[in-house]
Design a protein around this nucleic acid. Structure first.
Length: 472
DNA sequence: ATGTAC
């Protein structure tokens, strides 16, 4: 399927429904950001063919090609119209997301002890392919607690403070998790990885607040100029990956039985109201809780290093997933409907006044955490009223070069030396992994943010720059 | 993203 885009706003393009498409496609981006997104735009059109899809198949400004759905894709389905859930619309790294903590020291206070803090974090933050973990599970009971209780269970077991949970999406745990739908193999893969970064673009960074665009909202979030922050990007490791694999396979087998045909095999799906659909949703929610517990443990490990080495406290700003499907109420055709909103490489961005926000954030909107690259800015946005795309925005810079291309351009050793000359401390897991994550392998995150803000998907609150990178 | 294939 070749999709044709027509511009209908400064940062809004439309794909007219043709063929099997049930709704239009809508891509929020600038012309420049779309130049190399052809395959991903085809995927936006493919998603528009899914049974029960409502309103439009959306894409965020950092859109790029992914498994079935584009990364940066958002699509909602209605169970009352035979709507489906598709694991490809969540991604292999279920509940991958970002956590931001703010320190009670500023850049000048950190500099004298920066290397000591980095040397403390280096052994305290397990990372790299297949490696784990902060928490050695004592048995099946701990795993069940994590799968149903997420960050809440981690805090109950002493890995954090009760007040952390107020600043977690879903107060730290997704409801409706069904550990019974998680395979033994997934549990086995996940049991030695609770509290580990993983590899690829996952990281723990020390960052400095370089610019504040809205002082009042930043203050509510807990951010001020020159302050040191810790940002964590990680997900559900081998457990989420195995759950995705298991349920894609089951759905591939059941699709014919439900009379579902999709233009791409990777769009395997099942009706929300079917045993296969419900089974995936229960397992996915369990993986989401694992991902949140994982970030809670990493945060707590960083907190202990900061306290011991720098005498500094870390307060949670927010924790939000950018790979998840959630049942949410949204107005469609003037009627409030319960929809399954798939966000894959897209961040939920609740507007001011939303009932699901904690009391202290309700007047200002949800903090939206957008990591850039190891050498460029990250952003904190806030959700805005009337956000299109079911209150969603972008999730990062978006890859521009393949991993192979990136590693050909620079060696890991060269890149680390270059970053350290620029004042950024680096603790990697592998030289190859470092080279693959070079900033020039990504699009310009500032252009992505400009498009997101221009399209009305969120608004800028603060810009952060890297000071130290602990890389998976 | 991922014990980079079962």
């Amino acid at each position: 399927m070749t999709a044709r885009l027509t511009q209908e706003g400064p940062y809004r393009f439309r794909i007219e429904p043709t063929g099997e498409m049930r709704v239009p496609g809508v891509v929020f981006a600038s012309r420049e950001l779309l130049i190399e997104a052809d395959q991903a735009v085809d995927q936006v059109a493919n998603v528009a063919t899914l049974p029960g899809v409502v309103e439009a198949s959306y894409a965020m400004p950092d859109i790029h090609w992914g498994y079935g759905f584009a990364i940066g894709g958002v699509a909602a389905t209605d169970p009352r119209q035979g709507g489906v859930v598709s694991p490809g619309g969540v991604g292999f790294d279920i509940s991958c997301g970002v956590r931001l903590m703010a320190a009670d020291i500023d850049d000048a206070g950190l500099r004298p002890v920066l290397q000591d803090v980095m040397n403390g974090l280096d052994p305290a933050v397990p990372r790299g392919m297949g490696r784990g973990a902060v928490w050695r599970l004592s048995g099946r009971q701990d795993m069940m607690g994590i799968l149903t209780g997420g960050s809440r269970y981690a805090v109950e077991r002493g890995h954090g403070d009760e007040r952390d949970l107020l600043r977690c999406e879903d107060a730290g745990a997704v409801a409706d998790a069904d550990p019974g739908q998680v395979s033994d193999r997934a549990i086995e893969r996940g049991s030695g990885q609770v509290g580990s970064l993983g590899s690829g673009n996952h990281f723990l960074e020390l960052q400095r607040v370089a610019e504040v665009y809205d002082t009042a909202v930043a203050e509510v979030f807990g951010l001020r100029p020159d302050q040191i922050c810790v940002m964590i990007h990680s997900g559900s490791r081998g457990l989420g990956h195995q759950i995705c694999t298991d349920h894609v396979r089951a759905m591939e087998k059941s699709m014919a039985r439900y009379g579902i045909r999709v233009p791409d095999r990777q769009l395997a799906c099942a009706p929300l109201e079917s045993p296969e659909g419900r089974s995936y949703l229960g397992a996915m929610a369990a993986a989401a809780n694992y991902g949140r517990a994982n970030r809670q443990l990493l945060a707590h490990a960083a907190r202990q290093v900061f306290e011991k080495v720098a005498g500094a406290r870390l307060d949670l700003v927010y924790d939000v997933s950018h790979n998840l499907a959630k049942m949410e109420e949204h107005p469609v055709d003037g009627e409030r409907r319960l929809l399954c909103v798939h966000r894959k490489g897209a961040t939920r961005a609740l507007p001011p006044g939303h009932a699901d926000l904690p009391d202290d954030l309700r007047d200002v909107g949800q903090p939206v955490l957008i990591p850039g690259t190891m050498s460029t800015s990250s952003y904190v946005l806030a959700g805005v009223p009337d956000g299109p795309a079911f209150y969603s925005t972008c999730h990062g810079a978006g890859r521009a070069k393949s991993r192979h291309q990136a590693a050909r351009g620079v060696s890991g050793r060269e890149l680390k030396a270059r970053m350290e000359r620029g004042g950024i401390a680096v603790r990697g897991a592998s030289w190859r992994g470092l080279a693959e994550e070079a900033a020039d392998a990504y699009k310009d995150v500032s252009a992505v943010i400009e498009a997101a803000e221009g399209a009305g998907l969120g608004r800028k609150i603060a810009r952060l720059v890297p000071v130290g990178v602990v890389k998976g």
